[in-house]
Design a protein around this nucleic acid. Sequence first.
RNA 1: GUCUCCUUCGUCUAGUGGUUAGGACACCGGGUUUUCAUCCCGGCAGCAGGGGUUCAACUCCCCUAGGAGAUGCCA
Length: 492
Amino acid sequence: MKVRVRYAPSPTGYQHIGGVRTALFNYLFARVNNGTFILRIEDTDRTRYREDALEDIYETFQWLGFHWDEGPDVGGDYGPYFQSRRIEIYREYADKLINTGQAYYCYCPQERLARIRRMQTANKMAPGYDRNCRNITEGERKEYEDKGIKPVIRFKVPLKGSTVFHDKLLGDIETPNEDINPDPVLLKSDGYPTYHLANVIDDHLMLITHILRAQEWIPSGPLHVLIYRAFGWEPPEYCHLPMVMGKDGQKLSKRHGATSVREFKKNGYLPEALINYISLLGWSYDDAREIFGLDELEKIFSLERLNKAPAVFDYKKLEWFNGIYIRKRSKEDIKKMIMPFLIEDGIVRDPLTEEEEKLIDGAVPLIQERLRLLSDAPKLVRFLFGEIDRYNIEEIIPKRLNREKTLNVIHEVRKILVDFGEYSDEENEMRFRGLADKLGVKLGDILMPLRVAVTGTRVSPPLFGLIKLIGLKKVLKRVDSVISLLENQSSE
RNA sequence: GUCUCCUUCGUCUAGUGGUUAGGACACCGGGUUUUCAUCCCGGCAGCAGGGGUUCAACUCCCCUAGGAGAUGCCA
């Protein structure tokens, strides 16, 4: 049987890293098995539905670079892939359950449900529906209908016995039926199905063979199996994936930092870094390798190597992966990718000027291996554009020197800077070493004042490359302003 | 409260009865380097606890503890 798996997000918010991990594992499982990966939009909660959340689903996976074989945008033989367009189907199947006595109408108002829940929690009882309408008479039913009350349809969970379902990761999970959610709603009063009904029907109708979803779904596993049985269907295979947690061990949420893929994108992460890192949350290949591209993962992923325990999301490690992948990219890619960050920072104009373009082209090779996030770029190149507004005297003077000595060093540096452009970086380095020897100081002690003069900071990309990029004229001006700064200081 | 799942360095993990318990991130130290970064070398640090089973348990079983999830006309 051909493997068919699905990712079934609900468009109520932006794509969460945990959901995307589930999507990735489903996708990889499909690829490894030459199967089909399906996207199904579970938009049955019309109160929480958001148009931008739906767009975010498309944008997120577009950006990540993997796609479904069947789905709302690409079509397929088992649509529609929006649950909101399948409500007649759910109604029809819910009716079947009513007719076979495996489901019933419930007319309990929300207030009553809230009341019994309050009562239950107050008495430390398990909260849940009290099955009040499970045995109402046809007369009572008529009465409610005449009053115009819109009923919900509830599933008749067996009162006795137990239900067992098999999980490929966890093994058999057996639950006494009395511990299962007492008669959950299948069809809401607005005619839309709940998750429990819709997912079972759709997975069956769409010929889904394996359900890979997060472990938070384990408790509803037995219920779903019961529903499959009620229809006379065979449930698919289950595999509940370990959850993704925050540093404090709780379910990963905004409290912990970025959680949606679009935030990671905005913060300067690369899609391949995210994919690689995410693939290792609850899964591993062996004891040595952990750098994997999507294409590779599509060949080596396997359920057998899943971990049972939840994984804590480590932003630091993701950053490390990001640095790795930034270094792997071409200069052109990096240029393209840092541009939005430079523009947003107001460092360059939106259509670049020729001058700006030249500076960026020259800067990329200098900063690429220094980036961990694309968003690090602005602070690394800011001094290339515009002026340096202020220097810090203490930063100019090296530890081993005092003000006078530094001033002297800079004067000497200025002399050999004049024909800087005529030499290669290697040659210039020899010249500066020569100067250092002559002055009896360390190379670093003459380059640091120069670095601060040119860049305004002690930490920068390689100095010689920067000097050529900025141009001698500007560099000398900056050196001069540092000289006068030091001189003014001495006259006080 | 009840039910279910989980438990190897701080974090991600390898490990399927006999290993000096391996790797990675982070952290610390050192080297290379004009600073930073990269790169290289080294260090720190772990089998939750208690019982069994066994000649031998991180590995198998039980209990305890801890953590998490579920308990909706949300998914």
